[in-house]
Design a protein around this nucleic acid. Sequence first.
DNA 1: GAGTCGTGGTC
DNA 2: TGACCAAGACT
Length: 361
Amino acid sequence: MPRRDPAIPDDAASRIAAWQRRAGRHGLPWQHTRDPYRVWLSEIMLQQTQATTVVPYYERFLTLFPTVVDLADAPQDAVLRAWAGLGYYARARNLHRCAQALRDEHGGRFPATAADLAQLPGIGPSTAAAVAAFAYGERAPILDGNVRRVLARYFAIEGDPATARTARRLWSHARALVDAAPADLDMAAYTQGQMDLGATVCTRTRPDCARCPLSPDCRARIEGRQGELPTPRARRAQPLRHCWMLIAECEGRVLLERRPDTGIWGGLWALPQFEDEAALEAVCAGLAAAGPPLSLASIEHVFTHFRLRIQPLWLRIPDDAPTPAEANQAWVGIGNLADHGMPAPVARLLDGLYDGTPLPR
DNA sequence: GAGTCGTGGTC
DNA sequence: TGACCAAGACT
C-alpha cells in the first residue's frame, strides 16, 4: 500500500474530475467509449501529436480496420499507408505488431491491467495507464506533456524535463495525487481532466489560472512562477543536412523505393535518396535517359533534431528504354502514387510536380 | 540515460 | 517567422 502524502489535498484529483465533467473537452471521437481497441488506437495516435491532427486518421483507421483482428490481419504496407503523414512511423509498425501479438497470444483481447498492457509493443507506461484508466477505470497515473506541465506548476517541480531525475519526480507526484484521492474517484474524468487542463487552461504561455480548479493551492500560481515552470528543455541547435532525391519517370511511372524499417521514415515508400549529387548521377547513368536530370526547386523539411534540405532532380526516360528495379523498388503509375504511404515532403514534392498537370510529352 | 524518431499548430 | 512543442516509446 503506497504511503499517502500529507502535503497533497485529498480532493485535488476530485476537483480535476469535476472540472472535466463541467468544462473539459467532450466532443472528440475517441471519448465516451470504453472499448479498449478504440482507446488504445487513439492513445497511440495521440503520442506527441495534437488531437485535431489525429481526428481524421483515427476515423479512417476504424473504417479500414474495424477490429484489432482486422488490423492484425492487414499487411503492414496497408497500415503504413493509412498512417502516412502522421509521423513517428515506428508507432505504426509497433501498432501492427501489437495487434498481431493480441491476436496470436491473447485471443484477440486486450490485457486487463496497465502492467500487462505495458508489456506490449508501442505501449509505454503512460499509454498503458491511459488505456487502463479509460477502458477499465484502473487507478493508474498518466504522465504526458500536458500532465507534466500541470504537475510541474502545481507542485513547483523544477528541472530539465528531459532528464530521468525530473521524470522520476513527476511520476512520483502523479502517483501520489491518485493515491491521495478517495476510492470513488472517477478515473476516466480525472485522466481526461488532467490532459484537458493542460491543453486548454494550464497552457504553456498565458495560463488561465482564474478558470483552474487547482489554482487555490497551486505553488506556481501562489509564488507567481507560472512563466518559469515547467523548466524549458535545453535545446541544441538543429544541424542542416542535405540530400538529393531522384524523380525517375518513364511511361507515366515513377521509381519509388521502400525504406528500411529502421531510421527515418522507416517502412515508407519514398524517392531514391542520395547523400551527394555524384551518387545520384551515377544511378542516372544506368537509366538510359535521353539527357541529364533536371534540377527542380529544393525544399526544406524540419524534423525534431535536424533540418533537411532536399534537392529533387527530375529524369525523363524514353518510353522504350528498360526500367530496371531493385527488390525494394517499384515503378509506380503517377495515378497510383496515393496507394503508397509516403513521407509528407515526398508526397508534397510529387503532388507539386504531377497534381492536375498533364505530363509534357 | 541521452539520442532518435515526423509533422503541423501556435504565438 | 522561427522557436517551441504536442495524449511518448524505443534503443
